[in-house]
Amino acid sequence: MANRIETYLIPPLFEALQEDRLVTIATIDKESGNPAIHAISWIRALDEHTLRIAVHSRSSMVENIKQNPAMAIHLLANESAYAISGTGKIITEKAAGVPVQTAIIEICITEIRDVMFYGSKIILEPKHEKTYDEQAAQKLDRQVLEALRKGAEE
């Protein structure tokens, strides 16, 4: 996909967004108007045009999106770096079945750019691990991922 612009997730990116993955997201800070960067791992592609993320309901990202829905996601996958631009919408600020106040945000993809610098490729993607109780982390992940799948259904 080098130097191409897409309006949908190509298969390798769709697949990459079906598993636990560290991404950074930029929103516009509601007070300063400056870019605000957030790191998250609760992200899934619903289809080629739609992503869902989960964040704590008190995250500044929630208020930023209410003020200005423009978002950009930085994704390292498929041996490259991608900027996924889109419009965010708060689906719910209290996801059902999740013990922590969790907001679900849906992103309608408007553009995907391969932003890797010329003549290079990613040879090792970043990994992360949860640093709190492993069983509690796995349980919470399952609950949040189920909420992402359902959205605002309940």
Rank of each mutant, 00 (worst) to 15 (best):
R113I: 14
V62K: 02
E15S: 07
K66L: 01
I37W: 09
Q138E: 11
I43E: 06
K127C: 13
M71G: 04
I28C: 06
V115C: 09
D20I: 08
R113A: 14
I10W: 12
A147D: 07
A96R: 15
I122G: 09
I104N: 00
A39C: 10
R113S: 15
A36Y: 06
H49K: 08
I84V: 00
K30I: 09
D29G: 06
A81E: 04
R142H: 14
A96T: 15
I109H: 01
I90C: 01
P35A: 05
C108Y: 10
E6G: 10
R21K: 07
R149P: 09
K121F: 14
I28N: 03
K121M: 14
I73S: 00
S60W: 09
I65S: 02
E31S: 10
M71T: 04
E31N: 11
E15Y: 07
Y132H: 07
A16P: 03
H128K: 15
A16H: 05
F14P: 02
D47Q: 08
D141K: 15
G33M: 03
E79K: 12
N64H: 01
V100W: 03
Q135T: 14
I91W: 01
A77Y: 04
I90T: 00
L46Y: 10
H56Y: 12
V98N: 00
I37E: 08
E125R: 14
K89T: 08
E154S: 13
D47V: 09
E48C: 04
F117H: 14
I40W: 02
C108L: 11
R113E: 15
A72E: 06
P69W: 04
S80N: 09
N68D: 08
R4L: 14
